[in-house]
């Protein structure tokens, strides 16, 4: 499912012997080729550019799907670290940024799924003080007031699909790649989720109208 492509080495990897960097038999070919090692400064620069373009959308996806900005910070960093360490990650130079971005979103989606599956036992001392602070309506933005309550009533998977489709503008095929499902399932699930959130948004708007 994950796109396969040759991965050029980062600058810090040049300090390690080849034998330590080849995780699979396929890596031997890469070592034999040897010539595809790019200028490390250029490679880091390419990553920095990719990061500057993709970090905020990825954080937005994680924050809106999890409804937890702190968790989004952690998972975003972990996603990039895994992306950099993954042997099968698409190379920016050869596979293109779109493929790299899809791969990154897929890592983030899997991390979110792992997080939700993990049993949690949080001590009250571990929760930051800010968590208990009551946030007034005045500090909430329009989108939070409108979309926040509706998203909270959606299932995590529905939130992810809706965000990818309507915020990131991904096609059904791309969402299927990110979520690890088939396209037909995405079409049906997204259709249901869209109906559900539209009803919630309309109900919320109607409530607001009555109150005002």
């Amino acid at each position: 499912m994950a796109p396969t492509g040759k991965r050029t080495r980062m600058s810090w990897e040049l300090a390690l012997p080849d034998a330590l960097l080849q995780p699979s038999p396929g890596g031997a070919e890469e070592a034999a080729a040897g010539a595809d090692v790019c200028d490390p400064a250029m490679e880091n620069e390419a990553f920095a550019a990719f990061y500057s373009r993709s970090a905020r959308p990825l954080w937005a996806y994680l924050a809106r799907s999890s409804a937890d900005p702190a968790l989004a910070d952690d998972l975003m960093q972990e996603s990039y670290v895994r992306f950099l360490c993954a042997a099968g990650a698409p190379a920016l130079a050869t596979d293109g940024e779109a493929a790299a971005r899809l791969y990154l979103f897929r890592i983030a989606t899997n991390l979110l799924r792992d997080y939700w599956r993990r049993p949690r036992a949080v001590s009250i001392e571990e929760i930051p003080e800010e968590f208990f602070a009551v946030r007034g309506q005045a500090t909430q933005t329009d989108a939070q007031i409108l979309l926040g309550p509706a998203l909270k009533q959606m299932k995590p998977r529905e939130r992810q699909m809706l965000w990818l489709a309507h915020a990131e503008g991904y096609s059904h095929r791309e969402i299927a790649k990110v979520m690890g499902l088939n396209t037909a399932s995405i079409r049906l699930l997204l259709f249901r989720a869209r109906r559900k959130i539209a009803a919630l948004l309309r109900a919320h708007s109607a409530d607001d109208g009555r109150k005002s």
Partner: peptide
């Protein structure tokens, strides 16, 4: 839905505070 999500996306992009890429 698209208008709500696009609005939320713009706000979330502004709220993101990514760390320096060198750290990653």
């Amino acid at each position: 839905i698209s208008e709500a999500f696009q609005h939320a996306r713009v706000e979330s992009l502004a709220a993101a505070r990514p760390v320096a890429p060198a750290v990653l």
